[in-house]
Amino acid sequence: MRIAITHISEYRYDGPAGSAVQALRLTPAPVKGQTLVSWKVEAPGIDSACSYTDGFGNLVHLVSPPADSTVVRIAATGVVETTDTGGVSGWTGEAVAAGAFLRSTPMTTADTAIEAMAEAVRSDDRLATLHALMDAVSEHVAYEPGSTHAQTTAAAAFDAKMGVCQDHAHIFIAASRFLRIPARYVTGYLLLEDGAEAPAHHAWAEAYVDDLGWVGFDAANCLCPTDRYVRLGAGLDAASAAPIRGVRRMTGEESLTVDVDVQAVGQGQSQSQSQSGGSQSQQ
């Protein structure tokens, strides 16, 4: 399947942006099941940005917009060719060893409730365990936009029994790591079925299975990724994999608008959506 993506983030400040830096993880890695046909990242200062591939396999651009900017617009656009691999990303070639994805982070620490859920699905068959875990998370946690925020922990969302894809992924990761199965957070895009209620800017989890490598589990949709999924970046949790992470040394209000448009090329299928809200920046 050929999927065209436009992902625009617009930061608006009520005064000059001042000294700011943003790390962009906005370029899909060439993993099994996806090939970049074209891809472009546009941002103020991108031409002089420094870039490198981080330990998790993400291409990073560090941009510092001009200090007098009042609007910073960051756009990632391109076309990706996908095939259905049954959710298998395989051996993705990043530097970080699988064993490091057993580390827990503040957002992905299992509490006793998550541990109990994990215990209930534990079996000798790792793949079967992970599928059962995906079912259990999906069943326990309702999809409820606005019920959680960017810093909500896995334990808090699990306790509230609701959340968004970030929370489903964090809970899945926390439980998987508790079972000593390496797991990580993946960001990406989803080509929605007509009428589906979910954001096109998506996140899910990947877990490590010996004979397969990394396998995706989307507990929010209770599904392993198909050819409708484009995988953008990976990390230990949402903070570590964030497509845009910024720090600004300036007080003052700012707002962020994100527009994600995902469509199948040549099949007349598309959806787009916007969301507004606070930003990941801090002073």
């Binding site: 330990g55 990043e94 530097a95 060893a97 064993g99 490091a100 580390r103 230990l236």
Partner: peptide, 18 residues
């Protein structure tokens, strides 16, 4: 042991491959 390295708080996975 892998855990002593990879899960150690003093280990920075961000440094890997550099």
């Amino acid at each position: 042991p892998s855990s002593m390295v990879n899960e150690n708080p003093a280990f920075l996975p961000e440094m890997m491959g550099f």
